[in-house]
Design a protein around this nucleic acid. Sequence first.
DNA 1: CGAGTTTGACCAGCGC
DNA 2: GCGCTGGTCAAACTCG
Length: 253
Amino acid sequence: MEELNRMGSENKKLTEMLLLLQGQLIDLKQKYSENCHSNLKKRKAEEENLGGEIGGNSWKRPRETTRANVSRVYVRTDPSDTTLVVRDGYQWRKYGQKVTRDNPSPRAYYKCSAPNCPVKKKVQRSVEDPSLLVATYEGEHNHLHPNSQAQMSLGFNHLGMIPCSISSPTYTNSSSIGPNPGPNILLMKPTGLTTIDGEKSSPGMDVKEFQQHLVEKMANSLTGNPSFTSALAAAISNRILDSDLTDNLENNI
DNA sequence: CGAGTTTGACCAGCGC
DNA sequence: GCGCTGGTCAAACTCG
């Protein structure tokens, strides 16, 4: 039993790590494609190298003199689902939508509808993976999360979300959450969920049994995927490079 | 009727 | 100065 608990917590850690790494991998891929395609994007990349990307910030508008708290969140959705909705538990009011030059899918602009809350978010489909929504959050909520208690117990950050979602479409699907305004993490709720190979967990299944089942499925899936190792290696090296860059910048300041 | 969404217009920054 | 682009505004519209 202890072994099971230990495996469970290790699995949790690994899952969180994987989520972070996948987010970074997607960032890296997008940066790479940007660098390869135009002089304008070359300029963007230079700006990123000069610190524009510190803190996960991808907004390079020079007019932003005071840099707000910016973070990016990746959410897996159904590619056929055209709604740019990221359910993070907060109440958002859409105030604009635009088609940007480097992405054929429209970008939606939202403001937090809580009174005096300065937080904004932009939601756009990833060019790389149309089934992936990229939500960019700016600022920090000056009020409690509507589901703050549940969020805290699940270890969510101040945005009420984890940094990115698991990439398997059968794992995380914001549109499958339904009217529940909670976070986009299906793994948290072990009833009637879909596992990697599409099988449903039985409603009567014990939580621990389900977790154990999930651990096995995930392990099989990851070890059976030859691209995972290289993707993981790339993401880790990216992380190392990032920390080196940060160190250099700190030394130079 | 109020809250939220849509969408065209407008504004500011930037490169040429 | 002009055109391009991203971000925001606000009137019209929709929905519960």
